[in-house]
Nucleic acid binder design. Structure first.
Lengths: 237, 237
DNA sequence: CGAAAGATTGACTGAGTTCAACTGAAGTGG
DNA sequence: CCACTTCAGTTGAACTCAGTCAATCTTTCG
């Protein structure tokens, strides 16, 4: 067992700063949080935090993708979101003054900084910019969740799959050096747990989509061939 | 058509102040928002705002219950939450700087105050107390939504109904002068749209619950007879 | 009193789950 | 380096939960 890597990354020069809520901070505030944080390289499949435990700070993703999920009845994962470069994790539990309501696990090798609670909260106090930014973001997330609930409640698995594929493509773009497949290392299980269906059902539908020339697959990779077709199938207006 | 009633209610003496986020304000801030707001009595079934329109301020419920819903494919309502005394409505769209993602409609006669955007945002700036309070509340809501999505995705309609009945009882308590039924004027349609199912299915399940002595009904009213039984049925641990 | 909305019941259908079996890929330790 | 386990992916078949359609009944309300 090797020791975990602890690279030093300054927030000021972080390549993901632009995508982060912290981009609204001025340089000396940035220096302050940069001093307070520590940075770790995680291997694929490592847990950042477990549902039910107490938050001690927030995680900020420098590089990589993390799945956020909740455990339902009999331990089945429901994936709530996938967070990537510049994304912040675990601040909701902190702000709500609650235990974590979800767990977070790396989907690939990740470089992630940890900012202790006190530093984060103090910065939030000092910067009304950041405060507003976070407020805005949480509110927007709430809007997304609302849509999610509605989709989950009213749409068929087929429609949900189409929507999910479009969203994934939209959010994470396409892998350029691999002729345009969705650039996430998701297992079929994971994908099923995003959509909220059984793995077998997901596989059958992917097969159907393939027959209909909407997508093509190569092992785990899914490539979207006909976005317009997916939109039509999803009954999006 | 009569003119709408416009009672004058001061925030300082509002009977729902205690249940509101504004309870964290000091008295002169309270006076400030009290001056800025207007108050209206709504009849049952009136719309406070429509999904897709721009928020001009926030609504604060002095008295009554409001359903918040999103329209899904082909106009089917998905009820996201029910807000009552002391509850704030429409601030999320404001904070997210977006159009309303949901609509709000009164479930009964309601007295509701309207606070213009500028007043609300300024108060938010001036009171870090209020700011924190709102932040906390939004974060908590996010947690509830997460649970909701998981339930929606993983649990059967039967389980969801049991959970929903327990929650309604829990949140809105029991109607004292009516031997303990759930104190909300929800149609079967509404209840189905909370759970995310067809009205007919809901009715059949209510019937089943009645046969199993878990609940009893009187017209629209539902009375919970065996909460423990519902908990068991819902597989809550 | 009639119209309209809400509530209920029955019959039918099908989307999606579950269970079971099998394949292929990928480690892993002897 | 190979046998062995393990995990991910796939396919088939049976079953069942829940949605839809249609008809009827009830209540409410102008």
């Amino acid at each position: 067992m090797r020791k975990p890597l602890r690279p030093s990354i300054a927030c000021q020069t972080c390549r993901s700063l632009g995508a982060s809520s912290f981009s609204s901070l001025c340089s000396h505030q940035l220096t302050a949080i940069s001093k307070g944080k520590s940075c770790t390289v995680y291997k694929k499949g490592q847990i950042l935090f477990h549902e039910g435990t107490r938050p001690l700070g927030v995680f900020c993703i420098n590089q990589g993708k993390v799945k956020v999920y909740k455990l339902g009845y009999e331990g089945k994962e429901q994936i709530i979101s996938i967070v990537h470069n510049g994304g912040l994790l675990g601040y909701k539990a902190l702000l709500a003054e609650e235990s974590y309501g979800v767990s977070a696990e790396t989907l690939e090798e990740c470089t992630i900084c940890f900012l202790p609670k006190s530093t984060f909260l103090q910065t939030l106090q000092e910067s009304s910019q950041l405060n507003q930014q976070i407020m805005k973001q949480v509110s927007q997330e709430l809007g997304l969740m609302t849509e999610n609930i509605t989709n989950q409640a009213q749409r068929s698995v087929r429609e949900r799959l189409a929507i999910t594929l479009l969203k994934l493509k939209d959010t994470y773009g396409l892998d350029t050096h691999d002729n345009g497949s969705i650039e996430i290392n998701l297992t079929r299980d994971d994908l099923a747990n995003i959509i909220g269906t059984a793995t077998e059902t997901l596989i059958r539908l992917l097969h159907e989509f393939k027959s209909d020339q909407l997508i093509s697959t190569q092992g785990r990779k899914i490539r979207i061939e006909d976005p317009a077709g997916l939109v039509r199938l999803a009954n999006l207006y």
